[in-house]
Amino acid sequence: MFEARLASTLTLKRIVDALREILNQSTLDCSDTGIQMQAMDNSHVSLVSLCLRKEYFEKYKCNRNISLGLDLKSLTKVLKCANGDDAVTIKAADKADKVELSFESAGKERTADYELRLLNLDQEHLAIPETEYNCVVHMPATEFARICRDMATFSESVVIACSKEGIKFSASGEMGAANIKLSETTKGEVSIQVDEPVALSFAGRYLSTFTRATPLAEKVKIGLAPDVPLLVEYPIEDYGYIRYYLAPKVDD
């Protein structure tokens, strides 16, 4: 038996919004410590990893591990039926072929229950090693979203170069070129830790997709190391995260 209750549906809506552009379907792995999900996009260029520890939930019960295969389009449709300030309870019986979502209005005067059919999805799990990133940058999530949007105007490829002087995003195409550089700020909005400078090239459209997670967090963490995937991490309060990994482009 699995049961998890969140005081507000809004975060769940935001989490699904952050995933649904990159994934159509995915499996939530629920255990007594919380919920995990990991999936690659269709082209196998990026990977998204979601973690929600049980402490994130108002109520959390999971007697035995259960995997919930979900169609994110269908889940989005159900979440549209709820108000952001509704409480939501997700329930599934052991070996169930459906999941139940119950919404309760803030004043408790309205309840609505929906059932969603579960999918049997082939799960591919990748082992993500602990990586020591040569460059770790924290910046406002809205700033990162703005940079990704502005870069996309110029080119498909974005070069991210990080050194002690700052982090620089560059794109050049037929129209011209764009360079945006951020330096560390004294107030701490932007922090830049650099062991060794790194410069890598990435497909901009994936970066833009990752910024769908912007409403979830004030700050985004970016990790760069030579010849490893880029890390873009959005914390979910103190109880979890969405991490996106993006494979770098290599010279033709």
């Binding site: 690659m40 990977l47 591919e124 082992a127 993500i128 990994y245």
Partner: peptide
Amino acid sequence: MQRGIDSFFKRV
């Protein structure tokens, strides 16, 4: 050229 993410992480 774009590398696949699965060339960096091992399948388990």
